[in-house]
Amino acid sequence: MTDLMISLRRSPRTLLERDGHPGPGPGKLGLVMARAGVGKTAVLTGIGVDAMLSGQKVLHVSIERTIDKIREWYDEKLVEMLKHNKKLDHLGPLQLTMERNRHIHTFVGQSFSLERIRHTLDLLRDAMEFVPAVIILDRTEYTELNPDSIAELKAMAAEIGAEIWMACRTHRDGPPAAPGHLPPPADTFEGEVDVAFSLVPQDAKVRLHVIKDQDEMVDKDLNILLDPQTLLLVTGVAAKK
């Protein structure tokens, strides 16, 4: 991993770095919560780029989206990070590194199932020797994941040493979170959630709350701001300190 790659990291995932591990760790589930349209997918893509900049392999699973669209988001995110650091001339080689360390798998026509995810992981390992360290599950609101299937998913990820990131859409007019719990609908499977962020639009920025970390409810406003265009930390790695 080069110094350049480290210097580019600006995803909220960098806030979780501890004991030399770049994310929450194998078998753990990270959750990004927000209302529709705030930027959950953008945060998930940023987490994917962050993992690759940390030298990890990423499996990005999406529902009803095209591969081209998802690649475009990753490329945009990388361009933004390079522009921010005035290193745009490194785009070509870094794009290539990203492509070699990322696999996008999309399910269309209601073909998503846990069994298919397991099948995909097996195929990637056997046919391509591709074993992801981070699995991103985008648009899970279009699936029928429940607490049991989420537990199964975590077990599946733990077997290969991968962490999972998912998004969860909260509702503006929905009931508020009960004290000490995640807001609905995440409260139904909160026992499985190891890390949870929520995104709250505020003026021209998006405010990031850490709601759960290391299995503990935190619910602290650490005064962390995200750029509303990119959903990356406004001031990069320095912002977390």
């Binding site: 591969i67 998802i70 696999h103 798998h105 999309t106 995909t120 046919a127």
Partner: peptide, 30 residues
């Protein structure tokens, strides 16, 4: 799908992604 992945890897391909749709699969690669 596995055969397709292998056929592309054997040809120095970089697999960009795959799509599953009702029993069919599409694999995109450079």
């Amino acid at each position: 799908q596995g055969t397709i992945y292998k056929s592309l890897m054997q040809r120095r391909g970089t697999v960009l992604g795959s799509t599953e749709d009702a029993g069919f699969a599409r694999v995109d690669a450079d």
